[in-house]
């Protein structure tokens, strides 16, 4: 087969995002099901050599395709989707991560190609069949696509991150694509600064819920996280109550995480929340209510007052 596979890179101008590294692994699995179809990585943006070099050492990548233009430094889907659609012809599969970037862009691209889209894929079964969670992860759908171009977003936590090989160097091709004018203007961005590991990529996640009680009390959750070099997460209740910013929300409508260790503190364990963390290897629940549903998915549960337990726990580890 002469078909190629395209991965749309998400990057910060220097390196590929961890979500895109997982997408590369998914693309490699598609390639294994399609007689080893080549995998192209598309870099869109105001691209510097540093980024191109850091992307060319992934052995999963056959070719790095670079489209560089200052107008692309803000990656708005209204602009990117028609550009990608215009160069889609050689590709049988187009993949991107199910991050806010990919979720915004991928369906817009699919509609321009007049094809469906597969969302948040967790398993690649064959060249045209995948598994994806539905109903907040309470069911899994095995779906076959009949489209000429299969467009999908990939769940980061379901795939290993592609590895670099410093002895490898993918082919690099810079191309020109018309940059369309658009009806969207970026007014501003508010970035949540954090010295902690990124939530979706962390090995340990410590999450707080309504039971934490206040924004001030969240400092205790943060101290435990710092002790474990963990990322901080939260339930929707904690976000809505204003304890933490909304980009820390774990759940069906927030981030999906699958760390080695997930510690849920003062979280009841609603379906919505469990959908975002139930693939974690080990789950610990600390809650004052012995009947909280979180204990049904926890490997280790500790019933008690978190204000007594957390200081002891911080001391003990």
């Amino acid at each position: 087969m002469s078909d190629r596979i395209l991965v749309i890179a998400e990057h910060d101008g220097k390196v590929l995002s961890s979500a895109s590294r997982a997408t590369l692994s998914a693309a490699q699995q598609v390639s294994n099901h399609t007689d080893g179809a080549p995998v192209d990585l598309l870099l869109l943006g105001d691209i510097r050599d540093e980024l191109v070099q850091s992307c060319s050492v992934y052995s999963a990548v056959t070719k790095v395709v670079v489209v560089s233009d200052p107008r692309l430094s803000v990656p708005l889907s209204e602009r990117l989707a028609p550009m990608i659609a215009a160069m889609a012809a050689p590709y049988s599969h187009i993949l991107m991560s199910a991050s806010s970037f990919g979720k915004d862009l991928s369906p817009r691209l699919a509609a321009l190609l007049d094809v469906g889209q597969l969302s948040d894929v967790t398993v690649i079964e064959s060249a045209d069949t995948v598994i994806r969670p539905i109903y907040a992860g309470n069911a899994l759908a095995r779906v076959t696509s009949h489209d000429a171009t299969i467009v999908m977003t990939v769940r980061e936590s379901a795939f290993d991150k592609a590895e670099v090989n410093q002895d490898y160097s993918a082919e690099i091709e810079a191309i020109d694509v018309d940059v369309p004018s658009i009806n969207t203007e970026l007014l501003g961005q508010v970035v949540t600064e954090s010295a902690r590991p990124e939530l979706t990529a962390a090995n340990v996640v410590v999450s707080g819920g309504r039971g934490v009680g206040s924004k001030e009390n969240f400092a205790l959750v943060e101290s435990l996280a710092d002790r474990l070099n963990a990322a901080i997460g939260a339930s929707r209740a904690a976000v809505d109550a204003g304890y933490v910013s909304n980009d820390l929300q774990v759940g069906q409508t927030g981030k999906i995480v699958a760390p080695d260790l997930y510690i849920a503190i003062g979280i009841s364990g609603a379906i919505q929340h469990v959908a975002g963390m139930k693939e974690s290897k080990v789950v610990v629940a600390i809650n004052s209510d012995p009947d909280a549903p979180i204990f049904d998915v926890a490997d280790y549960g500790l019933v008690g007052d978190l204000f007594t337990i957390l200081p002891e726990l911080i001391e003990a580890i």
Binding site: G116, L140, R142
Partner: peptide
């Protein structure tokens, strides 16, 4: 575009 072949329990 797509056929749901099967719904599985997680």
């Amino acid at each position: 575009s797509q056929t749901v072949v099967e719904i599985l329990s997680p």
